[in-house]
Every structure is written in C-alpha cells, then in structure tokens.
Amino acid sequence: MKKVLIVETNVTRYQGTKEPTGLWLGESAEFVDELNKAGIAYDFVSPKGGFIPLDPRSMKYTDESILSVYEDPDFVHRGLTNTLKPAEVNTDDYFAIYYTGGHGVMWDFPDNTELQTIAKEIYAHNGYLVSVCHGIAGLLNIKDDNGNYLIANKAITGFTTTEEIIAGKKSVVPFLNKEIAEKNGATFKKKRFYKDYAIKDGRIITGQNPFSVRSVAKLLLNEIDLGGNKHANNLGK
C-alpha cells in the first residue's frame, strides 16, 4: 500500500520580525491521528529536511489526541526532528501529498521547486493534492508541463483574509491566500471564520483553517476503499 507524504515548514519566525512561528502542531498531529486510525502509512518532508519548529500559539489549541501524537517518539523523530529532504523522496511511494500549515509555510512553500515537482509527479499518477489552512501556499504556484496552474478552474479553500485580520497577521504575511488563488485561476471558497470547512474538487482536497484538519483527512480517506477496490492502483494494492 502506498503512503501519504506530509509536508511541514522549516521557518522559525515571521520574516522581518522577532516573533516565532512554525508548524501549527494540530495540523500535522490530527491528520496523523486520522491516518493511524485508518492504518495508512506516511512520511514527513520539509523544504530543508531535519528540524521542524512549532508555532508556540498552536500549543494553546491542543487536546488529548494531539498531545498523544506529540508524545509519540516516532512522530518526534520522523515528524519534528528528522524530516526527509525533498531529494530523498521517491514519489512512486505516495498516493497523496498533504501540506500542513502554520504561518511559516508562507515563506518556504510557495516557490519551492523541489516540492512542486514532487506534487506534480504524485498528481500525474492519479494521486491527491491535499492541504489545510496556510498549507494551501504549497499548491498555489504549481504548474503542469504546459505551464497551467494546477488549481486553475478548481474550487479550493485556505486561511481567509478575515482570519488573518482576526489573528492580527494581515500586516506581516507576504500575501493573502484568496488573492493568489484567484489570480491563478481558482475559485476560492470559504465559510464563517474559524469554522470547520473542507472541500474536494477532483483530486484536490483543501481545508480552511486549523479546525478543518480531520474533515480534510476524512475526505481523503473516503477516496480509499480499505477493502481493496476504490483507487486500488493509487494505493499499490
């Protein structure tokens, strides 16, 4: 059975400031929890490989399930301290790539050509492009071999401008997700701020904010027939 590739950020602070950021813990941990319950294997990759900083604000939004993953030595080893470098990834091993969030991704996801190539190859082999919250930054600029944006003519969602304002970050982020998504031909969907919202359009699955992680995971898992039929080729069965 093929695996899911989870992408995390290496960025430690809001660029140009002294304020720390990094991975929003729940956006990795809750997704991992859903994969574990379904018996789906996964790996972790980051633009530079190795260490993953945590957004300190994300630690205020934990529950027992998040903390259980956070305390798992395997998650700490593979997901927080020894993530793969893009060059170490064999795309044939994966049926989906999932971009986690945290504001740090806005600086090291959008223009990383190695990650874009990985995503393109997974998608070209009938795989899924998946993101939540700011993780949409990893999907915004991917182009196919003809120079067309993969999100063009697709309905997607991500952290909204209203949510940036409420978070107090609109003035420090390098771009707004909705503006880039629409510029690159996507239809940007949203619900009320900080409400659970996830959508699927073809083989692209996106979630609006940190409260949408499990819904994103379930949309992906719904594409899998664990009995062995639906999308069996993608899973390598």
Results as ranks from 00 to 15, higher is better:
199 I>A: 03
213 V>E: 00
67 L>D: 09
7 V>P: 08
152 A>E: 10
135 G>I: 12
110 P>T: 10
131 S>T: 15
191 K>G: 04
221 L>G: 12
66 I>N: 05
37 K>F: 05
83 T>Y: 10
111 D>R: 06
231 H>R: 08
15 Q>H: 09
228 G>P: 03
197 Y>H: 07
169 K>T: 00
19 E>K: 02
115 L>Q: 07
25 L>P: 06
106 M>F: 03
205 I>W: 04
76 V>C: 10
147 G>R: 11
8 E>T: 10
78 R>V: 00
57 R>P: 06
199 I>T: 07
71 E>W: 09
152 A>T: 07
4 V>T: 13
214 R>L: 05
171 S>L: 01
199 I>C: 07
190 K>H: 09
115 L>G: 09
91 T>N: 04
220 L>D: 08
110 P>L: 03
169 K>M: 07
194 Y>A: 00
31 F>Y: 14
75 F>S: 05
190 K>G: 02
228 G>I: 05
197 Y>S: 05
26 G>W: 13
228 G>E: 10
138 G>M: 10
130 V>I: 15
212 S>H: 06
104 G>I: 01
127 G>I: 13
207 G>W: 01
8 E>M: 12
166 I>C: 10
110 P>Q: 03
20 P>E: 02
213 V>H: 00
168 G>V: 01
84 L>G: 07
236 G>H: 10
80 L>V: 08
2 K>Q: 02
90 N>G: 02
129 L>M: 15
125 H>Y: 13
114 E>V: 12
171 S>N: 03
179 E>K: 07
227 G>S: 06
195 K>W: 01
78 R>L: 09
95 F>K: 04
12 T>S: 12
127 G>V: 13
172 V>Q: 00
142 I>T: 15
40 I>E: 15
43 D>T: 08
111 D>I: 09
203 R>I: 07
103 H>K: 04
169 K>I: 01
197 Y>I: 00
22 G>M: 15
149 Y>P: 11
225 D>Q: 03
25 L>S: 06
226 L>V: 02
196 D>V: 05
13 R>S: 14
58 S>T: 12
91 T>V: 08
89 V>H: 03
185 G>S: 12
176 L>I: 13
143 K>E: 10
156 I>S: 12
198 A>Y: 04
154 K>D: 12
145 D>K: 11
127 G>F: 14
180 I>S: 06
202 G>H: 09
205 I>Y: 06
62 T>E: 14
233 N>D: 07
36 N>E: 13
202 G>I: 03
127 G>H: 14
